[in-house]
């Protein structure tokens, strides 16, 4: 197993792929390897990319990756799509827009299903970022699920969070500002050649102005046409500048702290859930308690107390 970690650190694509699978399946071997890989991670610039569905995130990521390759950087991409809560299956189609990158040995793309996690990420994403980081990728891009407005968890893991918007959202920018609009370190307004571009720019600018009034620096807004590669170098410059500005600051240290806090909480949550719901001892007890709740012999809170007191014994 140590051998697998060694191969990951040498950048061997098959070892990286294997390692990610182990992490996704929460296998015990993965834990052993992650112990080794953790000490070698922390060097990559982690870029989180979120935004509404159809904003062109995948195309933009493809172009951004190409730009970083031109600059001699090695790139890892994690593309997350929703897992069906009914079948447990997932259709992962983000690669369609990235196939031209498939044969570049210095780009590693992995598609992942959310596997029951909310917040636009997947449970194993912390591990996968760390694996790609330890494998020597200079840039790790995390693309969140592109639905709704709750996909804000990405800020926990990203050094720089990019929010992708498109013209024509109209008043919806007003409605989403409470969530997604508060997490941006950089905005990209994609499809800048579309009608309504000026209005969208103006809306985001006024929003950014509002935040700046509170004494913060203005969040940069970069217009791009991802399909034609326009604005991509400027976008990459802006993302890099954000990381440079952050480096060495107290904020950055605090941010990294929060990232590990989120990961720690996630690991504990997963293990506890597994302990309660996968192990036979508790599984039967859980079923009994559900029966009692059904028959109004117990309420859900008392049932939870009972299980937790047993687990924590």
């Amino acid at each position: 197993m140590k051998d697998l970690a060694q191969r990951v650190m040498k950048g061997d694509p098959r070892a990286i792929a294997r390692m990610i699978t182990l992490a996704e399946n929460a296998s015990p071997e993965a834990r052993e390897c992650m112990k080794v890989l953790h000490s070698r991670s922390g060097n990559a610039h982690v870029i989180g990319i979120t935004g509404v569905m159809g904003a062109g995130k995948s195309t933009l990521i493809s172009e951004l990756a190409r730009e970083y390759r031109k600059r001699g950087k090695r790139v890892g991409i994690i593309a997350i799509d929703p897992t069906s809560p009914f079948s447990g299956g997932a259709l992962l189609g983000d690669r369609i827009r990235m196939m031209e990158l498939a044969t570049d040995p210095d780009i590693f793309i992995r598609s992942m299903g959310t596997r029951g996690m909310l917040g636009g990420l997947t449970g194993a994403v912390y591990d996968v970022v760390e694996i790609l980081d330890a494998s020597g990728k200079d840039i790790v891009i995390v693309e969140t699920v592109g639905v709704g407005q709750a996909e804000v968890d990405v800020i926990k893991i990203a050094d720089t969070t990019l929010v992708v918007l498109v013209p024509g959202l109209g008043d919806s920018i007003q409605s989403i500002k409470a969530g997604i609009m508060e997490i941006a370190d950089v905005y990209a307004v994609n499809k800048a050649d579309r009608p309504g571009f000026e209005r969208t720019m103006a809306e985001i600018e006024s929003l950014v102005e509002l935040i700046a009034d509170r004494g913060e620096e203005r969040t940069p807004i970069i217009p791009v046409i991802a399909k034609e590669g326009k604005g991509i170098p400027e976008l990459a410059d802006t993302i890099d500048a954000h990381r440079k500005k952050m480096e060495g600051t107290k904020e950055f240290t605090l941010h990294r702290r929060r990232r590990y806090e989120a990961e720690l909480v996630e690991i504990i949550r997963k293990r506890l859930m597994k302990m309660i719901f996968d192990e036979d001892v508790f599984r039967d007890r859980v079923e009994d308690l559900i029966d009692m709740i059904m028959r109004k012999k117990k309420d859900p809170y008392s049932a939870a107390d009972e299980i937790l007191s047993q687990v924590l014994k």
Binding site: P13, G89, A90, L91, I96, S111
Partner: peptide
């Protein structure tokens, strides 16, 4: 296949053998 509970990666059209194999490796 998705509805049968599998994780399905779809590549889109016009793939070379090299592209298919590289993708298979990365996606394990």
């Amino acid at each position: 296949l998705r509805d049968a509970g599998m994780e399905v990666i779809y590549t889109g059209l016009h793939q070379t053998a090299e592209m298919v194999v590289q993708t298979a490796i990365q996606e394990d």
